[in-house]
Amino acid sequence: MPVRALRAATEPANPWLSWDYVTRNQDDLVRALSQHTTLTFQAVAIALVLALPLGALAHVRPRLAGPLVGTAGVLYTVPSVALFAILAPWTGIGRTTVLIGLVTYALLVLLRNIVVGLAGVDPAVRDAARGLGYGRMRLLLTVELPNALPAIVAGVRLATVTTVALVTVGVVVGYGGLGQLMFRGFRSRYHAEIMTATLLCLALALVCDLVLYAAGRAIAPWSRAGRTA
Score class of each variant (00 low, 15 high):
197 A>Y: 04
83 L>D: 10
118 L>S: 06
30 V>W: 15
203 A>P: 02
171 V>D: 01
208 C>P: 01
221 P>K: 08
111 L>T: 07
220 A>F: 08
5 A>I: 08
155 G>V: 04
164 V>Y: 04
202 L>S: 10
134 Y>V: 14
101 G>A: 10
215 A>D: 00
212 L>E: 10
187 R>D: 10
176 G>W: 03
211 V>K: 12
76 Y>A: 14
116 V>W: 04
143 V>W: 04
56 A>R: 09
172 V>Q: 12
33 L>M: 09
124 A>T: 13
150 P>L: 12
150 P>D: 05
137 M>Y: 12
121 V>R: 03
226 G>A: 15
210 L>N: 03
19 W>A: 14
170 G>K: 02
44 V>L: 11
85 A>G: 13
111 L>K: 05
62 P>V: 09
177 G>K: 06
164 V>F: 10
223 S>I: 04
219 I>M: 14
181 L>Y: 05
41 F>I: 15
36 H>E: 03
208 C>E: 01
4 R>N: 00
127 D>V: 12
179 G>V: 04
130 R>D: 00
37 T>S: 14
93 I>P: 03
188 S>D: 15
174 G>I: 12
188 S>H: 15
3 V>H: 00
159 A>Q: 07
54 L>I: 09
211 V>D: 09
222 W>L: 14
211 V>N: 12
146 P>I: 12
77 T>K: 11
104 T>S: 08
127 D>M: 13
81 V>M: 13
215 A>N: 03
16 W>D: 01
21 Y>D: 07
218 A>W: 15
1 M>F: 05
85 A>T: 15
158 L>E: 00
178 L>M: 09
226 G>I: 14
132 L>F: 05
153 V>F: 13
33 L>N: 01
58 A>D: 00
144 E>N: 09
224 R>S: 13
